[in-house]
C-alpha cells in the first residue's frame, strides 16, 4: 500500500522548519539580549501516500508532535513547504484552511480533555458533521449511528457523556468525531499510549480496519517503537528535530542505519528477547 512512484503523494512536506524562542531570563531582558532560538523541527521532508500508515517515532523533545501539529497549522511553520494534494497548506487561509483541516483530522493522547464533558457523545459527533456539511447529517440519529459503527461502538453510546465511558471507549469516540467530517488523513498523536495493553491492541486493530475500509492515510506518532513496528508501513525516526532515518518499517527496525535508531532499538524493553540488566544472580 505504499505510494507507487507514478501517483502523486497525498501529502508532501519539504524542508519544514519550526523554531521557538526560549524564554528569556530577567537578566537577558535587562541586557536586551535576544532570546535563544531552539529549532524544534529542522528541515524535515517526507511524503505520505494514500492509504499509507506512516509511523513517527523518537524520544521526548524530538519534535514529532510539533511536526504533526504543523501539518494542519496548529503550529505555524517558519519555513519550508507543506503540500496537501495540490493545495499549499502554508498559504491557505479561511475556507481553504478549514477544508484542509477537515481532510486531515487529529486524534490526541487524552480524549478526556479533547471531548466536551457536558456534551453527549452523539451531539459531539453530530456537531462536527453538521459544521462541515457532511452527507447524511439531516438524519441525526442515523448519521451518529453510522459513525459510531465505524469505531465499533453501539448506537446507544450516543446518549452517554464522556465520563461514563472507559479510556478505550473514549478514544474510540475521539476517533469517531474525527471520522464524522470525512477526512482523508488521521494524525494520531500518541493516541494509544495511555491505554492498557489489552485495550491498546483493540485500538490498533481499529486504526488498521479504518485504513482498509475507508482508505485512510494515518500518521501515527508514538514513542513506543513496538507499537509502530506493528501498525506502520513506513517509519520516520526523529531526533533533535531532524528525521534521522526513514524507510519501510521492517527495513528500519531490522537493519537500522543510523546510530540513534540503533540506540533506541537497543534500549527498548522486550519480553520476548530480554536483554538482562543484571537479572538473576
Amino acid at each position: 500500500m505504499n505510494a507507487s512512484p507514478d501517483t502523486l503523494p497525498l501529502l508532501r512536506v519539504t524542508q519544514a522548519v519550526k523554531q521557538f524562542v526560549l524564554r528569556r531570563t530577567l537578566g537577558d531582558r535587562v541586557a536586551r539580549r535576544p532570546g535563544v532560538l531552539h529549532t524544534a523541527v529542522d528541515h524535515v521532508s517526507f511524503e505520505l501516500g494514500s492509504g499509507e500508515v506512516l509511523g513517527l517515532a523518537g524520544g521526548s523533545g524530538s519534535g514529532k508532535t510539533t511536526l504533526a501539529r504543523m501539518l494542519i497549522r496548529l503550529v505555524e511553520p517558519d519555513d519550508g513547504q507543506i503540500m496537501f494534494g495540490d493545495s499549499d497548506v502554508r498559504a491557505a487561509s479561511g475556507h481553504a484552511l478549514r477544508e484542509i483541516r477537515r481532510q486531515m483530522q487529529m486524534v490526541f493522547q487524552d480524549p478526556y480533555s479533547s471531548l466536551n464533558p457536558r456534551m453527549r457523545i452523539g451531539a459531539a459527533i453530530f456537531e462536527a458533521g453538521k459544521v462541515h456539511h457532511q452527507p447524511g447529517v439531516d438524519d441525526e440519529a442515523a448519521f451518529v449511528a453510522r459513525v459510531l459503527d465505524l469505531v465499533r461502538l453501539p448506537a446507544s453510546a450516543a446518549r452517554r457523556f464522556p465520563q461514563e465511558l472507559s479510556g478505550g471507549q473514549r478514544q474510540r469516540v475521539a476517533i469517531a468525531r474525527a471520522l464524522a467530517v470525512g477526512p482523508k488523513v488521521l494524525i494520531a498523536d500518541e493516541a494509544v499510549s495511555a491505554l492498557d495493553v489489552s485495550i491498546q491492541t483493540q485500538l490498533l486493530n481499529l486504526f488498521l480496519d479504518l485504513r482498509d475500509e475507508l482508505g485512510l492515510s494515518i500518521i501515527f506518532v508514538a514513542h513506543q517503537l513496538s507499537v509502530i513496528a506493528e501498525v506502520a508501513d513506513r517509519v520516520a525516526i526523529m531526533h533533535e528535530g531532524k528525521i534521522v532515518e526513514i524507510g519501510p518499517t521492517a527495513e528500519v527496525f531490522h537493519r537500522p542505519q543510523h546510530d540513534y535508531t540503533r540506540s533506541l532499538l537497543a534500549a527498548h524493553p522486550s519480553h520476548t528477547a530480554p536483554t538482562p540488566r543484571g537479572g538473576s544472580v
Binding site: V197, S198, I199, Q200, T201, Q202, L204, N205, L208, Q224, L225, S226, V227, A229, E230, P248, T249, A250, E251, V252, F253, H254, L265, H268, S270, H271, T272, A273
Partner: peptide
Amino acid sequence: SIPTIESAGQRIRRDGI
C-alpha cells in the same frame, strides 16, 4: 497482546483481549 519489534513489517493483527 504485546506488540514486538521483531514482528516489524509482518502486518500481524493481534487478537487482544
